[in-house]
Design a protein around this nucleic acid. Structure first.
Length: 706
RNA sequence: GCGCGGUUAGCUCAGUUGGUAGAGCGCGUCAUUGACGUUGACGAUGUCGGGGGUUCGAAUCCCUCACCGCGCACCA
C-alpha cells in the first residue's frame, strides 16, 4: 500500500508533476508514440487548437474547448492513432490593438501621437507576455498538445505564407482593390468587416422635410448637405409627371440648389412618401444607386466624424451635435414637415467601442466571395464537412449564401502587412518593392485573413511534412459563435489553397454562462476564472463539470456545486483505488474468474463498448457520465461492497478470482476515464500492478474502437 | 422583419432509430468510527409548455399557438 493513498487526492500536489512527466515523455508528438501502441492502427488523428487571442487570460469557455478537444485527442491516442493536437496563438489584430489602446488611454497616451514602429513594438511585447502566460494556462488545463509544433500568427514563416496567399489570390482575380462603401470606425480610424460591427436597434427621430415639391424622410439630416438627387421608383404614379434627368431649383439647408430627378427601382414605394434624396458617400444603398446612374459622389463627413466645409456654418461640428441643429434650421426655414420620435431603426456600431459606424467610401482590398462561397457550399453538399450539432450547418449555409465581398484591409499597425506598393496612383502586389519611388501599403490584414488559413499554416502548407500527413485535420472543436466568423473562412481557404476541406467534423460547443444561465461579462461581475476553480477543486473536476451533461451547441449554466461534485468523484476514484490496492495488490492476474465474476467483467466490457461508441459519435457528455455512474454506483457501491465479505471468506478460488476481478475493473475504469480526468487517473495508474506502459496516456484503450 | 435553438422533478440538464420518464444537486427517513472527515440504503415530487394530427403506442414524428434565449438584418 502506497503512502500517498492514505490521504485524500491532492490535485495541487499532483497536476504540475504529472504534466511535466507527460511533456518530458515526448508523447505529445505523434512520432514519439510507442510502436506497440500505434502499430495496429497508426492512422493520423489531427486537431488544431483554435489559437487564443494573445491579449488577456483564458476564460472558462476556453477551458471547455480544451477539455473537449483534449478528451478527443487522448481517446484517439490510446486507440492507437497517431494523435496530434497543434497549439498556437493569434495576434488578433484589431482586438489586441483595441485592448492596447485602452491601456494607452489610461496612461494618457494615444496611438495617433506615436511612431507606428514604436507602437508595433510595444504591442508585440505586450502580446508575447500574454502569449506565454496563456500557454501555461493551457498546460494547466492538461491539454496534451504538441508544443514542439506551436505556431504564432506572427511567426515570420506564417507571415510570409499569408502574404503569399494574398498574392496568389490577386493573381487569380480573387482579391481586388476597390473604392467601395466600408464600415468606418471614427474612433479607431479603421475600416471593419461586417462581422466586426453590431447592428443595434435604436429609437431615432425620423424627420420629414420639404425638398422642393417633394417630401423626403431621413434619420440623418447631418448628411443631407450634398443631396442633389431625388430618387423615386419608375413606376410610382404619384411622380409620373417627373422624368428621369429633370432638374429643378429648390431651397435647401444652406440656400438654393439644383436637384436632379433619378428613377431607380431600389426605392420602396411603400415607405414614406416614396421619394428620397441620396448621400452616396455615406450610405451603401445610395452609393449603388449613384453608381448605376453615374452620379456625383461627395464626402460630407470626415474621417473623424466631423462635418466638412460643404456643411457651411456647421463645418467641423460632430454629427451627434449637428443633427438637431440642422433639423432646427430646416424647421426655421419652414422646411420641416413632421418629426416622428417613435421611429425605430437599426444602427451599426463598432463591436469593440460601440461608436456609430460611419459608412465611408474608401479604397480597400476586397476578397471576391461568390466563387469561394460556392466551393464551400459544394463541399458541404458533398458531406465533406459535418457539423455537430447538425443544425449548425444551416447557420453556416446562411452565412455562405449571403456572403458579401470581404474587406480585408485595416488601417492599424498591429497585424500582417499587406504586400502591396503604390506609385503615382499605380498599384503593384508583391513582397519586395518593385523599385525606386514605390511606397509600401501601410494597411494590415483583417485578422481572420490569417486565422482563416490556420489549419493550413499550422500543418506547414504547402510543402511541410505535417501538411502531407495531417491535412485535412479531423475535428475542429470551437465555440458556436464562430460558426459564421471563423469556420467559413477556414473552409474557403482550405479548399482554395489546400484543395481539400480543412477538417471533416466541426464540433461546436455552446457558451458557458454563470450559475443562473446569464452570459458572463466583466460589467456584470459574474465572470468565472477557470484557474480559480482548478486551484480550488482540481483540473479534473473542472473538466468533468464542463463536459458532463453539456450537449454540443447548448449553453451551459456552470455552478460551482457541480465542480465540487466532481472533486468528490476524483476522491472517490482515489479511494476505490486505495481499497483495491490495499486488498488485492497481490492478485494473481492469471487465475480463473468465477462465473459471477466473469459476468461482472462482461458488464464493464458492455459499458466500455458503449462509451467508446459515444466518444466516436461525439457524445462525450454521455461517455463521461456513463463512466462516472459505473465507477461510483456499480464498481464502488455494489461490487466493492459485496467484495468485502467475499474477500474475508475461506474459498481460495473465490478470493483469488475476486482480487483479479477488482484489479481488472479498476484498471479499465481508470483507463477509460483518462481522456476526461487525465491527472487523477494517471496518478492512480502509476501504482497499479497491471501497469504496462510508463504513462497511462499511452496505455491501450480497453476495447477496440468500432 | 428573417433565421436558429429551447420549453421534461424545487434547480441545472440527459433521454442515440417512437415502446407507458432519468441523472446530478437539493429535500425526507434510516444507517454508518476504517476504501471514502468528500459514506451508504431507501424514498417523495413530473397532465415531458398549450392545442390538434399520424400510430396499436408519442417527451420522441407532423401541424399550429404561446413564452424564453440567441443570431442575422443597407428600407431612406
Amino acid at each position: 500500500m502506497i503512502e500517498k493513498f492514505k490521504k485524500p487526492y491532492d490535485p495541487a500536489e499532483t497536476e504540475g508533476r504529472i504534466y511535466e512527466a507527460w511533456e518530458r515523455s515526448g508523447y505529445f508528438s505523434p512520432e514519439n508514440l510507442p510502436e506497440a501502441l500505434t502499430s495496429e492502427n497508426g492512422k493520423p488523428f489531427t486537431m488544431v487548437l483554435p489559437p487564443p487571442n494573445a491579449n488577456g487570460s483564458l476564460h472558462v469557455g476556453h477551458a471547455l474547448g480544451k477539455a473537449l478537444a483534449d478528451a478527443m485527442t487522448r481517446a484517439k491516442r490510446m486507440q492507437g492513432y497517431k494523435a496530434l493536437w497543434i497549439p498556437g496563438a493569434d495576434h488578433a489584430g484589431f482586438e489586441t490593438q483595441v485592448v492596447y489602446e485602452k491601456k494607452l488611454e489610461k496612461e494618457g497616451r494615444s496611438r495617433f501621437q506615436m511612431d507606428p514602429k514604436d507602437l508595433y513594438n510595444e504591442i508585440l511585447a505586450f502580446t508575447l507576455e500574454n502569449k506565454s502566460m496563456m500557454e501555461n494556462q493551457v498546460r494547466a488545463l492538461g491539454a496534451s498538445c504538441d508544443w514542439t509544433r506551436e505556431k504564432f500568427t506572427l511567426d515570420p514563416a506564417i507571415v510570409r505564407e499569408v502574404q503569399q496567399t494574398f498574392i496568389k489570390m490577386h493573381e487569380d482575380g480573387l482579391v481586388y482593390r476597390g473604392k467601395r462603401t466600408v464600415n468606418w470606425c471614427p474612433k479607431h480610424q479603421t475600416s471593419l468587416s461586417d462581422v466586426e460591427t453590431e447592428s443595434v436597434p435604436e429609437q431615432t427621430p425620423f424627420y420629414t422635410f420639404k425638398y422642393g415639391p417633394f417630401e423626403i424622410g431621413t434619420v440623418r439630416p447631418e448628411t443631407k448637405f450634398g443631396d442633389k438627387y431625388v430618387v423615386m421608383h419608375p413606376e410610382d404614379a404619384r411622380y409620373a409627371q417627373y422624368a428621369h434627368g429633370d432638374t429643378l431649383e429648390l431651397e435647401w439647408i444652406n440656400g438654393p440648389i439644383t436637384a436632379t430627378i433619378i428613377k431607380d427601382e431600389a426605392v420602396d414605394m411603400e415607405f414614406g412618401t416614396g421619394a428620397m434624396t441620396i448621400t452616396p458617400w455615406h450610405s451603401q444603398i445610395d452609393f449603388e444607386i449613384a453608381k448605376r446612374h453615374n452620379l456625383d459622389v461627395e464626402q460630407i463627413i470626415d474621417w473623424r466624424g466631423k462635418l466638412l466645409p460643404i456643411a457651411g456654418e456647421f463645418e467641423g461640428m460632430k454629427i451627434s451635435e449637428a443633427r438637431e441643429k440642422i433639423a432646427q434650421k430646416l424647421a426655421d426655414k419652414g422646411l420641416l414637415v413632421s418629426t416622428d420620435t417613435e421611429y425605430k431603426n437599426v444602427v451599426k456600431r463598432c463591436y469593440k467601442c460601440n461608436t456609430m459606424i460611419e459608412p465611408q467610401i474608401k479604397d480597400q482590398w476586397f476578397v471576391k466571395m461568390a466563387p469561394l462561397a460556392k466551393m464551400a457550399l459544394d463541399a458541404v453538399d458533398r458531406k465533406e464537412v459535418r457539423f455537430v450539432p447538425e443544425h449548425e450547418e444551416k447557420v453556416f449555409r446562411y452565412w455562405m449564401e449571403n456572403a458579401m465581398d470581404w474587406n480585408i484591409s485595416r488601417q492599424i499597425v498591429w497585424g500582417i502587412p499587406i504586400p502591396a506598393w503604390t506609385k503615382n496612383g499605380e498599384i503593384q502586389v508583391g513582397i519586395e518593392s518593385p523599385g525606386e519611388g514605390w511606397e509600401e501599403d501601410t494597411d494590415t490584414f483583417d485578422t481572420w485573413f490569417s486565422s482563416g488559413q490556420w489549419p493550413l499554416l499550422t500543418t506547414g502548407y504547402p510543402d511541410g511534412a505535417d501538411f502531407a500527413e495531417h491535412y485535412p485535420t479531423d475535428v475542429m472543436e470551437t465555440g458556436r459563435d464562430l460558426v459564421f466568423k471563423w469556420i467559413p473562412r477556414m473552409v474557403i481557404f482550405g479548399l482554395y489553397l489546400g484543395k481539400k476541406v480543412p477538417f471533416h467534423t466541426v464540433y461546436l460547443h455552446g457558451m458557458v454562462n454563470d450559475a443562473n444561465g446569464k452570459k458572463m461579462s466583466k460589467s456584470k461581475g459574474n465572470v468565472i476564472n477557470p484557474l480559480d476553480l482548478t486551484s480550488k477543486y482540481g483540473t479534473d473536476a473542472l473538466r468533468m463539470a464542463l463536459v458532463v451533461g453539456n450537449t454540443p451547441g447548448m449553453d451551459l449554466a456552470l455552478r460551482e456545486d457541480k465542480v465540487k461534485g466532481y472533486k468528490h468523484f476524483a476522491n472517490k476514484l482515489w479511494n476505490i483505488s486505495r481499497f483495491i490496492l490495499e486488498s488485492a495488490t497481490d492478485a494473481d492476474l492469471t487465475c480463473a474468474l468465477t462465473e459471477s465474476d466473469q459476468k461482472l467483467r462482461a458488464r464493464l466490457d458492455e459499458v466500455l463498448v458503449d462509451v467508446t461508441r459515444d466518444i466516436s459519435d461525439h457524445r462525450l457528455y454521455m461517455a463521461a457520465e456513463k463512466l462516472y455512474h459505473y465507477a461510483w454506483h456499480e464498481l464502488a457501491d455494489v461490487i466493492i461492497e459485496e467484495s468485502k465479505p467475499l474477500l474475508a471468506g475461506e474459498d481460495v478460488a473465490v478470493v483469488a478470482s475476486r482480487k483479479r476481478l477488482l484489479v481488472s475493473l479498476l484498471t479499465d475504469t481508470v483507463t477509460a476515464l483518462h481522456p476526461f480526468m487525465p491527472f487523477v487517473t494517471e496518478e492512480i495508474y502509476q501504482s497499479l500492478p497491471t501497469k504496462t506502459t510508463d504513462l497511462l496516456m499511452v496505455a491501450p484503450w480497453p476495447v477496440k474502437a468500432s
